[in-house]
């Protein structure tokens, strides 16, 4: 995702002289070198100073530029939270805050590097939009969407080496629209971000145990949430499963449950998320997710005991 992001950002910057990037001493690899060589003025490193990063990007946007601000998700959002709220959201400026390592993908780095409540925190801000692509292909489309977006955006990325999941998706990426990435009937799984791979594995497991075809959706746009699309899903399937790498507080699961109530949905609804707890398990990413019950077999067992 990181390399895809830098490749697309380079292309966007080549096409649009208003695109720039401000980093806080963390830089995407890949084609960022090309970006820096061709557009040295538009690559700004403020050092380990995240408040400066957001404030500076806001000032650039007030002069008509479309900056991206980039660092590890926890530092990109939480240290300069008030700059994001006041400078970006209150003034409604076209700045994309890119959080690398969204969720708990920086597993062994510990709680300081786990963005497990980022969607909830950013969702609460007026004017903010949120994109969390599930694979490199969606990252490509999402980065273009950010470059065109007229207001503040949080782009939640994983890190590197994520598999392609959407090459055969029946629907294209469209900002603000929930996207079917695997067709099916009766049962569907909703997810976003890197953990969508687990959602697809879960869909296959359910197909093996229950028969039929299980659908999967990428809810890449967490804000504005596609309420119509989700309401349609809630009435079209008997069983809807939400799987997210995020705290149980304020994520997609809670929002879909609220929507199900509002729309009078009759389906069975299951939500699986991280618990509202810091994680003190150290090991591979999958181990951390499993510590909070996020593992395809465990989830399958809970839905079909």
């Amino acid at each position: 995702m990181r390399d895809t992001f830098s490749r697309i950002l380079y292309q966007a910057a080549k096409a649009d002289p208003k695109i720039g990037i401000v980093v806080a001493d963390i830089s995407p690899a890949g084609s960022m070198r090309q970006f820096r060589e061709e557009f040295p003025e538009r690559f700004v490193n403020v050092g380990v100073a995240e408040q400066a990063m957001i404030g500076l990007a806001a000032g650039m946007a007030m002069r008509g530029m479309k900056p991206f601000a980039y660092t590890i998700a926890t530092f990109a959002l939480y240290r300069p939270f008030e700059q994001i709220r006041v400078d970006l959201c209150y003034q409604n400026l076209p700045v994309t805050v890119v959080g690398i390592g969204g969720g708990v993908i920086y597993s062994v780095l510990g709680g300081t590097h786990h963005a497990q409540e980022d969607i909830a925190v950013m969702s609460a801000l007026p004017n903010m939009s949120i994109l969390a692509p599930c694979d490199p292909l969606e990252t490509e489309a999402a980065t273009w969407a950010c470059a065109r977006h007229p207001g503040p955006m949080y782009l939640r990325l994983g890190k590197a080496g994520e598999p392609v999941l959407t090459a055969n998706a029946p629907e294209p990426f469209q900002f603000g629209r929930v996207r079917c990435i695997k067709p099916g009937a009766g049962i569907c799984v909703l997810s976003y971000g890197v953990v969508t791979k687990m959602a697809l594995d879960l869909a296959v497991k359910i197909e093996r145990s229950q028969g039929g075809q299980v659908a999967a959706y990428s809810v890449h746009t967490l804000k504005p949430l596609d309420r119509e699309g989700l309401a349609r899903i809630l009435t079209s399937y008997d069983r809807v499963i939400v799987l997210e790498e995020h705290s149980s507080v304020g994520g997609l699961g809670q929002q879909v449950k609220a929507l199900a109530f509002d729309s009078g949905a009759r389906c069975r609804l299951h939500a699986f998320s991280l618990r509202d707890e810091f994680i003190h398990v150290y090991g591979p990413h999958a181990d951390l997710l499993q510590a909070h019950g996020l593992q395809a077999d465990l989830i399958h067992g809970k839905i079909f005991p």
Binding site: Q51, G55, G59, M60, M62, R63, M65, V86, Y90
Partner: peptide
Amino acid sequence: IEASTGSLGHGLSLAVGMSLADNIQ
């Protein structure tokens, strides 16, 4: 009014960001 202020510690960064954009442009 060129910026929303009231929370202290924001205006200087906005000013520098504007000026940096002026240099770039």
